[in-house]
Nucleic acid binder design. Structure first.
Lengths: 178, 178
DNA sequence: ACCGATATATATCGAACTGGAATATATTGG
DNA sequence: CCAATATATTCCAGTTCGATATATATCGGT
């Protein structure tokens, strides 16, 4: 699964520009489980166009730079199906936050609390993105499954952090009183 | 946060060889939130040694290839603390599984079920790793926090999948009966 | 007894990807 | 009226991945 497959998969749902794909990986539906940089998306789209997996339609826009709208072809759908025909690779989760927590002995307590609050804010921001997608009427079973999974996992993280922060605050308050 | 910092952080907990660091990122404590390849770990350790951030001790072993045990220096600890002095970057989560679920229209139902069962098995394997760490007596607050967070999030994923698989099976059974 | 698989241990390298800078313009907010 | 933000693409240096190579021990199966 490389960026090519990612773009192909996205374009099988709707036509889009490279910019829109990237934006949806940051915000929209995909924000909590997919990422790719412009430096990989644009070359992938160009190559897919050369191979006939997608078509390009250049749209002139007054003022703004021209945009290239990509759309998947039948050959592209066939290639996508072949890519999906293997079991998905194991999830990859990288968390500098958890790494920092594991090394908390090297840190003052207040910085640990700030990191935990940042983590909680990040998780909540992702939950907000999902809530927005729901409001904007993404009610097909596929989207609902993905959003439901995201909500379940993100909410569990928020709950864990909230409980731990509460315990930490209670502790520091107790120590201050002594 | 690059592989250098990762190695430095690991070595601040215990001395180790490159092989052991990689193994712990795959299994041990770190399995569910950190990854790095040999191709990045070994060069990072060599460079850190050149810079005096770690020391190397070559241990001959009868039969097995010599191993190079790395240990952090005071300069290394100081550098690590500087690295930890910035807020951690946002978590990165990549899931081919969720991508596949979003494109489930391109897939037959049985393959979707297989993917879901694989995902559940993967999550359970991570939970097992954490349970093993606990049994082997990692009871310091830092480890407990990280393991607790992992358990909370992984369990939420398992529960969501279990419920959805049950609903899916009930549905297909109903359709078969009609 | 022997073979294959797995585990220990390190090194190397091309391909892939990231993250940031560069470019150009319109709109929005203070 | 200026700064910031948004649209839209391109390029590149540096980082990392994933696979391969090398060498040996051990364990299980036949």
């Amino acid at each position: 699964m490389n960026v090519r497959d990612l773009c192909l998969g996205y374009l099988s749902l709707r036509e889009a520009t490279g910019y829109e794909i990237k934006k949806d990986f940051e915000e929209g539906m995909f924000c909590h489980f997919m990422e790719a940089s412009y430096g990989s998306i644009y070359p992938a789209l160009s190559q897919l166009a050369l191979e006939g997996m997608v078509t390009v339609r250049e749209e002139e826009q007054s003022g703004k730079p021209d945009k290239k709208v990509y759309a998947i072809t039948d050959a592209g759908v066939a290639m996508l199906k072949r890519s999906l025909n293997v079991l998905p690779a194991r999830d990859k989760y990288k968390s500098e936050f958890l790494f920092m927590m594991l090394l908390q002995n090297h840190l003052p307590v207040h910085q640990r609390i700030i990191a935990m609050e940042k983590q909680m804010a990040d998780l909540k921001a992702d939950l907000m993105s999902i809530a927005e997608c729901k409001q904007q009427g993404m009610t097909d079973p596929a989207s609902e499954f993905v959003m439901g999974y995201g909500e379940a996992v993100l909410t569990a993280g928020v709950t864990f952090l909230k409980d731990n922060l509460a315990a930490l605050h209670a502790n520091t308050a107790k120590q201050a009183a002594e």
